[in-house]
Design a protein around this nucleic acid. Structure first.
Length: 272
DNA sequence: AATGTAGTCAACCGCAGGCAT
DNA sequence: CATGCCTGCGGTTGACTACAT
């Protein structure tokens, strides 16, 4: 099938192929990355014999060929995470994606656009977002008070382990308003830590989870229950649903009902 | 069965930041 | 320190698919 201009059809521009990838190209790229690892994308074209730009190769690998990609639909749990993290970080899809192992920024971006950004940007989502941020702010204040009390004890980083990641900072990507400390301020009921002891999730009085924006490949740990890795201490959570709190309003009740789809609170908990 | 519309997905583009020279 | 290159990110586009009429 031949089309006019556009990347939807195979074409060559300046010697670079564009448009959909063929299985042969995929194979070449996979073989190359398998042998040489990721990175150096600009040299991939030469070394692998691909007539694709480095950008294109990277994108294809990251969004489609990576072996650890999780295919299939976004689960309600993932959806909740996306909403939460979007409230925290806005359109920083790659940051959000780091908290969702196996999901790509592109996938999340598309999902968000499809599900939350069409037509009428829901008031209730905005409201919930505002509420969420407000609560977070309160938690911050609380944390500051807390910190001023225990600040001196906290000099040794190890002492933070198992507590509430006091003082953790978002060194990854701090363009936004949130810091890891923000999200980890409240008195927690359950805490998840990564191998290094840094907190990456906790469950707070809001009966919801909050991610800390750290190098969150770590979040994989949280899925240990499913994958057998089990490093986190996030055992119990989500004792009640948040839908009452967040999903109570008019037109988007259904949306939030689904977002906070914790009827299977147990499900959520076991997942994590 | 044919056509129109909405939803989903893959890929491109431009920009910004980091790093090497 | 300045410059250029590379990589990664977010926004956008267009093809494909599913569903409704």
């Amino acid at each position: 099938m031949e089309g006019p201009l556009g990347w939807g059809r195979q074409e060559e521009v300046d010697g670079w192929r564009k448009g959909p990838w063929t299985s042969q190209e995929d194979k070449l790229l996979v073989d190359h990355v398998t042998q040489h690892g990721e990175g150096r994308w600009n040299s991939v074209s030469k070394l692998a014999g691909l007539k694709r730009s480095g950008k294109s190769c990277r994108l294809r690998w990251v969004n489609y060929l990576r072996p650890d990609l999780k295919r299939g639909k976004i689960t309600p749990q993932e959806e909740s995470i996306i909403v939460q993290l979007h409230a925290l970080w806005g359109n920083r899809w790659s940051t959000i994606a780091r908290s969702l192992p196996g999901r790509t920024d592109n996938e999340i971006k598309n999902y968000w656009r499809t599900h939350f950004k069409k037509g009428k940007p829901s008031k209730s989502i905005e409201r919930a977002r505002a509420r969420f941020l407000k609560q977070r702010q309160e938690m911050m204040q609380q944390q500051q008070q807390e910190q001023s009390l225990i600040g001196q004890l906290d000099e040794d980083g190890d002492q933070r382990r198992g507590t509430c990641c006091t003082g953790a900072t978002a060194d990854d990507d701090d363009r936004g308003s949130a810091t890891a400390g923000d999200a980890c301020a409240a008195p927690t009921t359950a805490v998840a830590t990564d191998a290094a002891g840094d907190l990456i999730m906790h469950v707070d009085a809001m009966d919801c989870f909050i991610m800390c924006p750290m190098s969150c490949d770590d979040l994989l740990v949280l899925h240990g229950a499913g994958g057998g890795q089990g490093g986190g201490t996030a055992g119990s959570c989500c004792g009640s649903t948040a839908s009452d709190e967040y999903g109570s309003s008019e037109e988007d009740g259904a949306t939030w009902g689904s977002l906070w789809n914790l009827d299977g609170a147990g499900e959520v908990c076991t997942l994590w």
